[in-house]
Design a protein around this nucleic acid. Structure first.
Length: 485
RNA sequence: GGCGGCAUAGCCAAGUGGUAAGGCAGAGGUCUGCAAAACCUCCAUCCUCCGGUUCAAAUCCGGAUGCCGCCUCCA
């Protein structure tokens, strides 16, 4: 597998340091609010990475932390008059619910900042001992950025550039505006822990370095997160570990691109903030997951109604083929019609292309293209009356199902029973379109009666009415069915 | 101002040196009482523009234009 490494700004062959085992650490959430679609993307991207690595037979030790003490949490707790820790726990719970809906697997390790205070204090002490950090009279501890030669290597910045933008907040006692907080003295009423510098709490960047070295032999194989974390978060983590331990925190740094909403940056001020919950109230969670993997993970992706509806149609196409295969396999008598060689050849090509796409820096967009290649191939065989009932066709359908299931395991989609999924999809699309299923059923009944009476004009009139409602009638051997257009 | 990214058909989107995947939409056909699904065919002589390198460039280099991100909390 080749992966793009932010550190070297190029794709590199990925080989774990320890054969067969991958040490992966991804920055998780700060638990102060509901997760938005951006969190969903990051979670899905790295979930696919974990699944893709596992599919290659690698054992993935995956840590995803929770920041459960932080300014934002404290501020929000104060606003709501809630205990900061209780608030953080509440949002961690919400995170789990959202991730479960998106079929994002739990990480192997899910360390919380508040459970690693001692380790963070130790890291601060080590950094101070090395001259890489200093404590202030008021009990803050800062990292001495200028003392760390390699600072800026991840984000491609240098000290001079950074100086212009750096600023010192009132009350901070930094030696240099570039320095960042490793430990913050507690203000009255804030959660705090005792430390050599008095009661306080960790700075944001400290936890990832401390927890990484607690749970892993450094360097990590891969450290990941959203693109926005490159600077300053990951740059600072690197500096902390580099200065304290004299070695790299991670070999590969991976960063996913942002989600935009209707071509605009998602932000609270624009009022276009989309939580996962907002979205799955309107669409199936699988639609959101599918949408998120329709584009390469490093590119920005634009969340729009049109894109979501296209994702729905794509999923319907895949699940419809899956269902059609299931129906074909329910057949009992199989004939001897041989499957043409080109079908098997094409099938083999598609499988190879899917693997290639995923091995090339997790190109899920290309991989999905090959899923559709298989869908078309399957439908083509299904279309052939003789082949559909042949022994070799049966074997092909079974292998195609296996391929689809294997790919589904990697991508985390199209894993559900097809008929249930298609039903849910119809319901959710119908709800959005304001379609009343009872009314549809009643009209369908009317049409059936008209058809029975061979009154095709009346039957077509009903169809017309349903069409205007956005309902498509489908006559099947099992009777009439309907879908939302 | 500094750093970085992106520009591919009506829309979405792969493709980083060898002559444009895939999806949606659209047109025609097969199937159907009519439809739908599905299948077949068509739909970018061309990849923002201008130069250059090369036998060969959407792909590399230089320039222009446009859009976006980061530099402050942020996935």
């Amino acid at each position: 597998m080749r992966l793009y490494n932010t550190l070297t700004r190029s794709k590199e062959p990925f080989v774990p340091a320890e054969p067969g085992k991958v040490r992966l650490y991804v920055c998780g959430i700060t638990a102060y609010d509901l997760c938005h679609v951006g969190h969903a993307r990051s979670a899905v991207v790295f979930d696919v990475l974990v699944r893709a690595l596992a599919a290659q037979g690698l054992e993935v030790i995956f840590a995803r932390n929770f920041t459960d003490v932080d300014d934002k949490i404290i501020n929000r707790a104060n606003e709501l008059g809630e205990d900061p820790n209780a608030l953080a726990q509440r949002y961690i719970q919400a995170f789990y619910e959202d991730m479960d809906a998106l079929n994002v697997r739990r990480a192997t390790l899910e360390p919380k900042a508040t459970e690693h205070i001692d380790e963070m204090i130790q890291l601060c002490q080590d950094l101070i001992a090395k001259g890489a950090a200093y404590a202030t009279p008021s009990g803050d501890v800062y990292f001495r950025v200028r003392a760390y030669q390699a600072y800026g290597e991840l984000s491609g910045r240098n000290i001079e550039e950074l100086e212009a933008g750096a600023r010192v907040a009132p009350g901070e006692e930094k030696e240099d505006p570039l320095d960042f907080a490793l430990w913050k003295a507690a203000k009255p009423g804030e959660p705090s822990w005792p430390s050599p510098w008095g009661p306080g709490r960790p700075g944001w960047h400290t936890e990832c370095s401390a927890m990484s070295e607690k749970y892993f032999t450094l360097p990590l194989d891969i450290h990941g997160g959203g693109q926005d974390l490159i600077f300053p978060h990951h740059e600072n983590e690197m500096a902390q570990t580099g200065a304290s331990r004299g070695q790299a925190l991670a070999r590969f740094w991976m960063h996913n691109g942002f989600v935009q909403i209707d071509s605009e940056k998602m932000s609270k001020s624009l009022g276009n903030f989309k939580t996962i919950r907002d979205i799955i109230a309107q669409y199936l969670p699988e639609t959101l997951r599918f949408f998120l993997i329709t584009k390469h993970y490093r590119s920005p992706i634009d969340f729009t109604t049109q894109a979501m509806e296209e994702a729905e149609k794509n999923l319907i196409r895949i699940y419809t083929a899956k269902q059609a295969m299931e129906e074909a396999l329910a057949n009992q008598k199989w004939n001897k019609t041989p499957l043409p060689d080109d079908v098997l050849r094409e099938f083999a090509d598609i499988k190879a292309l899917f693997d290639e796409a995923m091995a090339d820096d997790m190109n899920t967009a290309a991989a999905l293209g090959h899923v559709f290649g298989l869908v078309r191939l399957v439908n083509r065989v299904l279309e052939d009356k003789a082949l559909r009932k042949s022994e070799q066709g049966k074997a092909f359908f079974e292998e195609a199902q296996d391929a689809l299931a294997a790919w589904g395991d990697i991508l985390g989609v199209f894993l559900q029973p097809s008929s249930g999924f298609l039903q849910q999809m119809r319901d959710v699309r119908g709800r959005r379109a304001g379609i009343d299923p009872a009314r549809v059923e009643a009209l369908l009944q009317q049409r059936q009666e008209a058809k029975k009476a061979k009154d095709f004009a009346a039957a077509d009139a009903v169809r017309q009415e349903l069409t205007l409602m956005g309902v498509e009638v489908r006559d099947t051997p099992q009777g009439p069915a309907w879908d939302v257009r």
